[in-house]
């Protein structure tokens, strides 16, 4: 067989396998996913890199912790007096509505600090316990927090002030499905009503 023929056959085989993959994934691509008013559902749920953090009770918080139920993760720091308590309050209200409407849903909320220097597990316990004791507060080493944020493309930047410092950071909240895969993102700047509606859409359609 000439070299030319081999290349031709390989080319054909490559084309067939490409078509096969395309048709195999066609149903999932054509499947109509509901749209969200406050964010986006990913075309395919995304696996995220391995991470190793701890919660306010010093228990491990890693990829396994995201499995089993739906988890909402957002980023912040306890020295943020305005946006963080507001988001905690909104998520607590949403959780109450979801519990009422879909009582069998396992729905967890998690604050991951971007400020491990000031936010120890003890400080998070004090802070989270005050605003919503059903929420998890998560911290870790600087490197481990950074590896978790980078797998979600979360941006954060420390802004030094005359006294102390703040952070500019990605505002989105991240929704993980029961398999621990990233399923959707939303913007917490929306109203409790708008966010609740979108959470309901997700949980009602993808249990």
């Amino acid at each position: 067989m000439s070299k030319r023929n081999i290349i031709f056959i390989l080319f054909i085989l490559f084309g067939i396998s490409g078509l096969f993959t395309y048709f195999q994934s066609l149903p999932s691509l054509l499947e109509k996913k509901p749209t969200l008013a406050t964010g986006k559902i990913l075309v395919r749920p995304m696996e995220i890199d391995q991470f190793e953090l701890i919660d306010q009770n010093n228990a491990a918080f890693n990829n396994k912790s995201l499995e089993g139920g739906w988890t909402v993760v957002f980023f912040g720091y306890t020295n943020c007096p305005d946006v963080c308590p507001t988001t905690i309050y909104k998520l607590a209200e949403i959780k109450n509505v979801i519990k009422e409407k879909l009582p069998s849903t396992d729905f967890n909320t998690v604050l991951v600090t971007l400020d491990p220097d000031r936010d120890s597990a003890k400080r998070l316990d004090e802070y989270i316990g005050y605003f919503d004791e059903t929420m998890l507060g998560v911290t870790g080493t600087y490197e481990n927090i950074q590896s978790f944020t980078s797998s979600l493309s979360v941006f954060y930047q420390r802004i030094n002030k005359e006294e102390g410092y703040d952070f500019n950071h990605t505002a989105s909240i991240f929704i993980f499905d029961k398999n621990g895969l990233l399923f959707a993102t939303m913007s917490p700047a929306n109203t409790i009503g708008e966010l609740t509606e979108d959470f309901y859409t997700i949980l009602n359609n993808f249990q």
Binding site: T78, C80, P81, P85, R123, E126, G129, Y130, F131
Partner: peptide, 12 residues
């Protein structure tokens, strides 16, 4: 003013 946990240094 939003109340905050003990030892909080900043309030809104």
């Amino acid at each position: 003013v939003r109340s905050a946990p003990p030892n909080s240094k900043v309030f809104s």
